[in-house]
Amino acid sequence: MSVSHGDSEPPYLHPDYRATVRRAPRRELVRLPAEWFHHLPGPAFGRVPVRSEDADLTRQHEREPLGERIVVSGQVLDSDGRPVRHTLVEVWQANAAGRYVDPVDDHAAPLDPNFTGAGRCLTDAGGRYRFVTVKPGAYPWRNHENAWRPAHIHFSLFGPSLASRLVTQMYFPGDPLIPLDPILQSIPDEHGRDLLVAALDLTITEPQWALGYRWDITLRGRNSTPREG
């Protein structure tokens, strides 16, 4: 039996997020029988280099970056609730001042010479991942008058099949910008939006060192229905 999760996924066209207007497909997506592609093994990402030090974004330079040191950790599951082992997790984020290293970012906030803001790891045998980083700052964008993105970390995951590929963003609990963000608010139902908000977790927190946030991720799998067009 499969369950439809249409309202937990954002639509392609969400005019409050202006960039969707010219980029959302307008034709109906072609729907293939699930068994034609859900059993295909997913992309072999083995060419993407992953070193063990890539999971600690605070140790990629001579000194430690400025900002609030945090641990972000969780479990990657398939839609049957089983752990997804040894799958690639990639993250990227702004520094504590809300500025990305990416040359495209022209926000007038300082770069931190000790922070790049990109990390990679593979999940362990229990499907768990763990990154050490600093809490990213909010940053302005030009979507509408006085628009600010809530603090977030970008995530990219593969999982076992073509259907399980996921690029998304993780948000922080209690952020007052969350209700104002057209990207997160593009998700129609509240439960879907809540799935993108991490939880402060004292079991992940390292005493006297770093606050911990827990964020579990569920990938689409064999039993997921295709998303609504």
């Binding site: 039996m1 499969s2 937990s8 990227w92 998304t168 963003q169 991720i217």
Partner: peptide
């Protein structure tokens, strides 16, 4: 069959992935 996990929703890759996701020899 025990399938009640709602998949984590997607969000845009945004404009600032260029220093993070591409890798050497990627294309």
């Amino acid at each position: 069959m025990g399938e009640d996990q709602v998949p984590t929703p997607s969000q845009t890759v945004g404009p600032f992935f260029g220093y993070a996701l591409p890798f050497e020899g990627g294309p």
